[in-house]
Protein backbone atom coordinates (compact mmCIF):
# COMPACT_ATOMS: atom_id res chain seq x y z
CA UNK A 1 0.00 0.00 0.00
CA UNK A 2 1.62 3.16 -1.21
CA UNK A 3 0.83 6.79 -0.67
CA UNK A 4 1.86 8.90 -3.63
CA UNK A 5 0.99 12.47 -2.69
CA UNK A 6 -0.86 14.50 -0.10
CA UNK A 7 -2.20 18.01 -0.48
CA UNK A 8 -4.32 20.44 1.40
CA UNK A 9 -6.23 23.35 -0.12
CA UNK A 10 -8.13 26.06 1.68
CA UNK A 11 -11.52 27.30 0.61
CA UNK A 12 -10.02 29.90 -1.71
CA UNK A 13 -8.16 27.21 -3.59
CA UNK A 14 -4.80 28.15 -2.13
CA UNK A 15 -2.53 25.13 -1.93
CA UNK A 16 -1.50 25.14 1.72
CA UNK A 17 0.46 21.94 1.65
CA UNK A 18 1.83 19.58 -0.93
CA UNK A 19 4.03 16.60 -0.32
CA UNK A 20 5.25 13.88 -2.62
CA UNK A 21 5.95 10.61 -0.95
CA UNK A 22 6.25 8.48 -3.99
CA UNK A 23 5.81 10.08 -7.36
CA UNK A 24 7.87 8.72 -10.22
CA UNK A 25 6.69 11.17 -12.88
CA UNK A 26 7.11 14.91 -12.36
CA UNK A 27 4.20 17.22 -11.67
CA UNK A 28 3.06 19.52 -14.43
CA UNK A 29 3.12 23.29 -14.10
CA UNK A 30 0.02 24.79 -12.48
CA UNK A 31 -1.05 21.36 -11.39
CA UNK A 32 -2.45 22.76 -8.15
CA UNK A 33 -4.84 24.97 -10.07
CA UNK A 34 -5.91 22.07 -12.24
CA UNK A 35 -6.41 19.92 -9.16
CA UNK A 36 -8.50 22.50 -7.38
CA UNK A 37 -10.61 23.21 -10.45
CA UNK A 38 -11.12 19.51 -11.01
CA UNK A 39 -12.22 18.93 -7.43
CA UNK A 40 -14.53 21.92 -7.50
CA UNK A 41 -16.22 20.83 -10.72
CA UNK A 42 -16.41 17.20 -9.72
CA UNK A 43 -18.07 18.14 -6.44
CA UNK A 44 -20.74 20.14 -8.22
CA UNK A 45 -21.27 17.45 -10.81
CA UNK A 46 -21.50 14.67 -8.26
CA UNK A 47 -24.03 16.65 -6.25
CA UNK A 48 -26.26 17.26 -9.24
CA UNK A 49 -26.07 13.65 -10.45
CA UNK A 50 -26.84 12.20 -7.05
CA UNK A 51 -30.13 10.29 -6.77
CA UNK A 52 -30.62 11.64 -3.26
CA UNK A 53 -29.64 14.73 -1.35
CA UNK A 54 -26.34 14.78 0.38
CA UNK A 55 -23.24 12.63 0.10
CA UNK A 56 -20.26 13.93 -1.77
CA UNK A 57 -17.54 12.08 -3.57
CA UNK A 58 -14.71 10.76 -1.50
CA UNK A 59 -12.67 8.78 -3.97
CA UNK A 60 -12.09 8.30 -7.63
CA UNK A 61 -9.76 6.01 -9.47
CA UNK A 62 -7.87 5.51 -12.64
CA UNK A 63 -6.22 2.28 -13.69
CA UNK A 64 -2.99 3.48 -12.13
CA UNK A 65 -3.96 5.20 -8.89
CA UNK A 66 -6.75 6.28 -6.60
CA UNK A 67 -7.53 9.79 -5.42
CA UNK A 68 -9.09 10.24 -1.98
CA UNK A 69 -10.88 13.41 -1.00
CA UNK A 70 -12.07 14.81 2.29
CA UNK A 71 -13.58 18.24 2.72
CA UNK A 72 -14.35 19.89 6.02
CA UNK A 73 -17.32 22.16 6.60
CA UNK A 74 -14.73 24.90 7.04
CA UNK A 75 -13.68 24.48 3.44
CA UNK A 76 -10.40 22.65 3.88
CA UNK A 77 -9.76 20.06 1.20
CA UNK A 78 -7.54 17.10 1.95
CA UNK A 79 -6.45 15.18 -1.12
CA UNK A 80 -4.39 12.05 -1.10
CA UNK A 81 -3.35 9.93 -4.05
CA UNK A 82 -2.45 6.33 -3.42
CA UNK A 83 -2.04 3.06 -5.23
CA UNK A 84 -5.16 1.07 -6.01
CA UNK A 85 -4.76 -1.22 -3.00
CA UNK A 86 -5.78 1.53 -0.57
CA UNK A 87 -9.42 1.23 0.33
CA UNK A 88 -11.53 3.94 1.93
CA UNK A 89 -9.22 6.62 3.25
CA UNK A 90 -11.89 8.85 4.75
CA UNK A 91 -10.97 7.90 8.30
CA UNK A 92 -7.31 8.47 7.58
CA UNK A 93 -7.93 11.93 6.17
CA UNK A 94 -10.22 12.77 9.04
CA UNK A 95 -7.51 11.62 11.43
CA UNK A 96 -5.01 13.85 9.70
CA UNK A 97 -7.40 16.77 10.01
CA UNK A 98 -8.21 16.14 13.64
CA UNK A 99 -4.81 15.13 14.96
CA UNK A 100 -2.35 17.03 12.81
CA UNK A 101 -4.10 19.98 11.23
CA UNK A 102 -5.95 20.93 14.41
CA UNK A 103 -3.31 19.99 16.97
CA UNK A 104 -0.19 21.15 15.10
CA UNK A 105 -1.51 24.13 13.16
CA UNK A 106 -4.78 25.51 14.49
CA UNK A 107 -3.36 25.39 18.01
CA UNK A 108 0.05 26.60 16.91
CA UNK A 109 0.61 30.21 17.97
CA UNK A 110 3.22 30.62 15.23
CA UNK A 111 0.97 29.63 12.35
CA UNK A 112 -1.82 31.71 10.89
CA UNK A 113 -4.82 30.13 9.15
CA UNK A 114 -4.37 30.51 5.41
CA UNK A 115 -0.58 30.50 5.54
CA UNK A 116 1.34 27.84 3.62
CA UNK A 117 2.09 24.94 5.89
CA UNK A 118 5.75 24.28 6.58
CA UNK A 119 5.74 23.96 10.37
CA UNK A 120 7.86 20.98 11.40
CA UNK A 121 5.40 19.81 14.07
CA UNK A 122 2.88 19.22 11.32
CA UNK A 123 5.09 18.04 8.50
CA UNK A 124 7.09 15.62 10.62
CA UNK A 125 4.05 14.18 12.40
CA UNK A 126 2.25 13.72 9.10
CA UNK A 127 5.22 12.04 7.49
CA UNK A 128 5.61 9.66 10.41
CA UNK A 129 1.94 8.81 10.22
CA UNK A 130 1.89 8.26 6.48
CA UNK A 131 4.84 5.92 6.85
CA UNK A 132 2.64 3.66 8.97
CA UNK A 133 -0.09 3.37 6.37
Amino acid sequence: MVVHTMQIFDRQGQPLYYREFNRPLAASKDEHKLMYGFLFSLKKLVASLSPKKGGGFYACSTSAYKLHYFETASGLRFVMTTDLAMADMRDVLRYIYSNFYVECLVKNPLWRPGEPITCPNFTKSLERYVATL
Partner: peptide, 16 residues
Amino acid sequence: GVRLIDEFLAKAQVGN
Protein backbone atom coordinates in the same frame (compact mmCIF):
# COMPACT_ATOMS: atom_id res chain seq x y z
CA GLY B 1 -13.72 31.75 16.17
CA VAL B 2 -11.85 31.38 12.90
CA ARG B 3 -9.52 28.84 14.54
CA LEU B 4 -11.92 27.30 16.99
CA ILE B 5 -14.27 26.11 14.25
CA ASP B 6 -11.76 23.51 13.10
CA GLU B 7 -11.34 22.05 16.55
CA PHE B 8 -15.10 21.95 16.83
CA LEU B 9 -15.61 20.24 13.49
CA ALA B 10 -12.83 17.78 14.16
CA LYS B 11 -13.84 16.79 17.69
CA ALA B 12 -17.64 17.04 17.74
CA GLN B 13 -19.50 14.36 15.86
CA VAL B 14 -21.93 16.58 14.01
CA GLY B 15 -23.04 16.33 10.43
CA ASN B 16 -24.03 19.19 8.20
